[in-house]
């Protein structure tokens, strides 16, 4: 049986060494550690599972749709005229991401990371599609949208974009916990390996939910499909993010 082919660009996008500012964010781990909610391997495992099942799954779905939108923009030549109006779709999809991110601190962290990722992706995979996204969301696209768009331009499938988003949702906080708590990095990677089936399920959900204007038959619209994307929330993560912003001593931006 032949292995499914995986786009190698996905590995670059998912790599923590991608110079896109991710190292400065803990995905809520620093605040959870400060609050005593994460203090060892079992509590970190619970934190990561909770994050993946909520904001991680939502990010996977948004990234998959952004990937599909990027691919359809590139294919249909609707990436937008560099001098003209921003192309359609991006602002709507980005608004769906914002609507699913209740905490203002998390929204800001998501936009900052999205802006930095897009800055990096536009130099690595120059494309009018990414230029169009930057123009459509000048304050910085939400991270899952930027990640999905970059993945689409790099030739990845929506499911691959979703996998990268789900992976980022757990590896960021895991790495931060290693630094902040001095946990055994091998033991933490074993936790991550145990999450592999959950990551794949999130990717599959994201892939199934992905929609672009090209893939949605009338009278429905892509925007109406995006409005129905999963919207799981994690109130504890929201509250921790707000608390982190006001913390007197912090190492990570978020």
């Amino acid at each position: 049986m032949s292995a499914p082919s995986l786009n190698a660009a996905l590995l670059l996008l998912a790599d923590s060494r991608l110079p896109a500012g991710g190292h400065g964010h803990s995905g809520g781990a620093e605040a959870a550690i400060a609050a005593g909610a994460v203090r060892d391997l079992p509590t970190l495992a619970a934190f990561l599972r909770g994050r993946l099942a909520t904001s991680g799954l939502v990010a996977a779905c948004l990234a998959a749709s952004a990937c599909a939108l990027a691919a359809s923009s590139a294919g249909s030549g609707t990436a937008g005229d560099p001098a003209g109006a921003p192309p359609g779709g991006w602002a709507e999809l980005d608004a769906e991401a914002g609507a699913r991110t209740a905490s203002p601190a998390q929204r800001e962290a998501s936009r900052v990371q999205g802006r930095l990722l897009l800055r990096t992706a536009r130099r690595i995979w120059p494309s009018p599609v990414l230029d169009g996204l930057a123009r459509a969301v000048p304050e910085g696209a939400h991270h899952p949208v930027a990640l999905g768009a970059a993945a689409g331009v790099a030739g990845c499938a929506p499911g691959e974009a979703a996998l990268a988003a789900a992976y980022a949702a757990v590896t960021g906080p895991a790495t931060a916990a290693v630094r902040l708590l001095g946990l055994d990095p091998v033991a933490v990677h074993r936790l991550l390996a145990d999450l592999a089936p959950d990551l794949e399920r999130a990717a599959s959900t994201g892939s199934g939910a992905a929609a672009s204007p090209a893939s949605v038959p009338p009278p429905r619209t892509a925007a109406s499909v995006w409005a129905e994307l999963p919207a799981h929330s994690a109130p504890a993560l929201d509250l921790l993010a707000e608390r982190h912003l006001r913390a007197g001593l912090r190492l990570f931006v978020s």
Partner: peptide
């Protein structure tokens, strides 16, 4: 290694 935040 990752100058994105500083450039921004």
């Amino acid at each position: 290694d990752d100058i994105a935040a500083n450039l921004d």
